[in-house]
C-alpha cells in the first residue's frame, strides 16, 4: 500500500468577517488520504466558514492552505483543484441550479471536458448509485428537501472527486435516507471532512472527530 498522502493542510489560519470578532484564530488542520474526519461545534462557531476557506471561496487574513500538496493563495491555484474536492453545501438549493436533475449532474463533467453523451452516462451512474435511478428528468425545484440533499451529493460525486467535503449532509434526511447515505459513503471509501451535529451519524462514519471552538480545533 502507498503511504497516506496529505490531502489538505492548513496552518496558522486566521479569518474574521469585517467588523466582527475572529471566527478562525490560528487554526491548524491536516487531512490524510486514509481518513474521513468529523467536524462539530456550536452553531455559528465557524464550521462552514472553515470549509469555505479550504475551498478557496473565502480568503484568510493570515495562514496557508495547501491542497493535494499544492500551496494555494489565489483563485487560479484553487480553480483546477476544486472539482477534486467534492464540496456539498449546507443548503442544497445553492447547489442545484439547473432545470432538471440530469442537467445538474452533467454540469460538472461537462465543465471538465466530457462530451454530452459521456456526461449523461456519468449522471445516470451517479443516480443509480444514489438509489434514485429515474430521477434524471425530475425538475430540481420540485424535489423534497431530502431528495435535494441526495442529488446535491450526487453533483459532487459526478466529478469523481479525490475527497469529499460535506456540510451537514444529514439535514432534512429521514432515518432511511440517512441509512442510505451511510451506505453510499461506506461504499465510496473516500477520505474527507464531514460537518454534522448528528453525533450518532458521525460515530458510525468517522474514526476521528474535531471540535471547533474559539477559532481552533481540538480532537475529541
Amino acid at each position: 500500500m502507498t503511504p497516506p498522502e496529505i490531502l489538505i493542510k492548513v496552518t496558522d489560519l486566521v479569518f474574521g468577517y469585517p467588523g466582527r470578532p475572529l471566527v478562525i484564530d490560528g487554526l491548524d488542520f491536516e487531512l490524510g488520504s486514509d481518513e474521513l474526519v468529523g467536524l462539530t461545534g456550536h452553531n455559528g462557531c465557524g464550521k462552514t466558514t472553515l470549509l469555505e476557506i479550504i475551498m478557496g471561496l473565502r480568503k484568510p487574513q493570515a495562514g496557508t492552505v495547501e491542497i493535494l500538496g499544492k500551496k494555494c493563495t489565489e483563485e487560479k491555484h484553487f480553480r483546477p483543484l476544486r472539482p477534486k474536492m467534492g464540496f456539498v453545501f449546507q443548503d442544497a438549493n445553492d447547489q442545484l441550479f439547473c432545470p432538471t436533475v440530469a442537467d445538474d449532474l452533467a454540469f460538472g463533467p461537462l465543465n471538465l471536458g466530457a462530451s454530452r453523451q459521456e456526461a449523461d452516462q456519468v449522471a445516470q451512474k451517479v443516480l443509480d448509485n444514489l438509489g434514485l435511478p429515474d430521477f434524471g428528468p425530475r425538475v430540481t425545484y420540485d424535489l423534497s428537501g431530502g431528495e435535494k440533499k441526495l442529488v446535491a451529493l450526487g453533483t459532487a460525486l459526478a466529478l469523481s472527486p479525490r475527497l469529499l467535503i460535506l456540510d451537514e449532509p444529514t439535514n432534512f434526511l429521514d432515518r432511511e435516507a440517512v441509512a442510505r447515505l451511510e451506505e453510499i459513503l461506506r461504499q465510496l471509501q473516500l477520505p474527507g471532512v464531514i460537518v454534522s451535529h448528528d453525533v450518532g451519524f458521525l460515530d458510525k462514519m468517522v474514526k476521528r472527530r474535531y471540535w471547533l471552538e474559539k477559532g481552533r480545533l481540538t480532537a475529541v
Binding site: 469555505e52 475551498m55 471561496l57 480553480r79 476544486r82 472539482p83 474536492m85 464540496f87 453545501f89 445553492d94 447547489q95 441550479f97 442537467d103 452533467a106 454540469f107 460538472g108 461537462l110 465543465n111 471538465l112 454530452r116 453533483t155 459532487a156 466529478l159
Partner: peptide, 15 residues
C-alpha cells in the same frame, strides 16, 4: 461558489 466548485469556467450548458 457552488458552480465554481464544480469547475465552472463561464460556459453554460443547455441541451
Amino acid at each position: 461558489s457552488a458552480m465554481l466548485c464544480r469547475g465552472y469556467n463561464g460556459r453554460f450548458w443547455a441541451k
